[in-house]
Design a protein around this nucleic acid. Structure first.
Lengths: 210, 210
DNA sequence: TAGATTGTTAATCGATTAACAATC
DNA sequence: TAGATTGTTAATCGATTAACAATC
């Protein structure tokens, strides 16, 4: 069904999912592109175009069924599957990711964390065991891992990514503040917290401009 | 100097800054749009267009001086100013933000955290005092705050944002997984960690498509 | 000077918006 | 049926890329 879908559309999908979940929780069963657009600050046209990249989930004269559309978008996002996750780095960022309740709710299960600090190795974060970084290869040999989270200093990120790739991991969620080189068949999504804060700083510095 | 600058350009600025910092650290003094483009996966044209939104920082036949350009972009991003920050929520995300070393290096100083949990109030995270949420208004009355970080559950985010606005805060960095309503003169930048993870999930689910 | 590379204008490409027939 | 709203095609708008004269 889905042919080429532009990056712009993909980046909006989680927003649709989030708003539809909120609407569902609020007991709303039906919504038009008009109303959803007002809520999400998008034009009704754009919403219909976006949704129709994946199929005609609406009905003329009615709009969209909230639960149904949320279900479709959840599937499109792959949230109907279970993802096994490991976290590299048991510092404050790694810990925050491990404890983030939303992830487990959406099918992301963290099965292990890795760190170099001897005082962390052997411990746990919540229920999650913290293993030695030296055990990474053997762990990957024995366990299927869908996603690796890089939550360690930039200086170690590239080397760790290369080890993950060699161990068969094909998807990385990167919190290290650097851009990483990776083979085409590896998917890397960056968080780059500093970038986001700098954009806030930019807007503050230029808020009088226009 | 800077007339209208598109969102697309603004979102790329932190990337320029990051790469220029890395180049400077590596001892590179000069770079052409060609080389920088190869490094950042952008066309040379785009780099020259982006930079020329703010002024002609290059020299024909030479390219750009790394340190000089980094300095200009740092200023454009407002990183030459000191920003006083408070963090709402002393959970694992708030703590991770408080401990993130990059921020203090770039001129963001966290002066207080706030939480409702009685076992956290009165304590510290690093050097930063954790105050009671009840003290927010009095704190804002006595201290200048440039940026508030929302690191609390979605259910409390809108209410807290309204209190921040009433207390004079005009910039918010939002980690709560919800979109917030805010007056025009308030600047809100969202992190939405779940969105980013869902985009990774999407790409994994559709990596065979093309 | 010759070579390189910018700054900037023009051309292209893609994403958003508008319009409207189809239809619930 | 009449009214509402989708799905989809066409028009517009904006961002990216190409080209090249200016100039270091």
């Amino acid at each position: 069904m889905a042919g080429y879908v532009s990056d712009a559309v993909i980046r909006r999908l989680p927003g649709y999912y989030r708003h539809l979940r909120e609407l569902e929780t609020a007991g709303v069963t039906q919504i038009s592109s008009q109303e959803l657009g007002k809520r999400m600050q998008l034009t009704p046209s754009q919403i219909r175009q976006d949704i129709n990249c994946f199929g005609g989930f609406g009905r003329q004269g009615y709009g969209y069924n909230v639960t149904e559309l949320k279900g479709h978008i959840g599937e499109i996002l792959g949230l109907d599957r279970l993802h096994k996750v490991i976290i590299l780095g048991a510092g404050s960022i790694g810990t925050a990711v491990a404890r983030y309740p939303t992830f487990s709710r959406e099918g992301f299960e963290t099965i292990a964390m890795f760190d170099v600090a001897v005082d962390k190795v052997g411990g746990t974060v919540g229920d999650i065991p913290v293993l030695s970084m030296d055990k990474l290869e053997s762990f990957l040999g024995e366990n299927h891992v869908d996603i690796a989270v890089l939550a360690l200093p930039a200086a170690y990120a590239q080397d760790t990514l290369d080890r993950l790739y060699a161990g068969g991991v094909r998807a990385v969620w990167n919190f290290a503040p650097t851009d990483l080189n990776h083979p085409n068949e590896m998917i890397v999504v960056n968080v780059h917290l500093s970038d986001s804060l700098q954009i806030l700083s930019y807007r503050m510095a230029h808020s009088e401009d226009e």
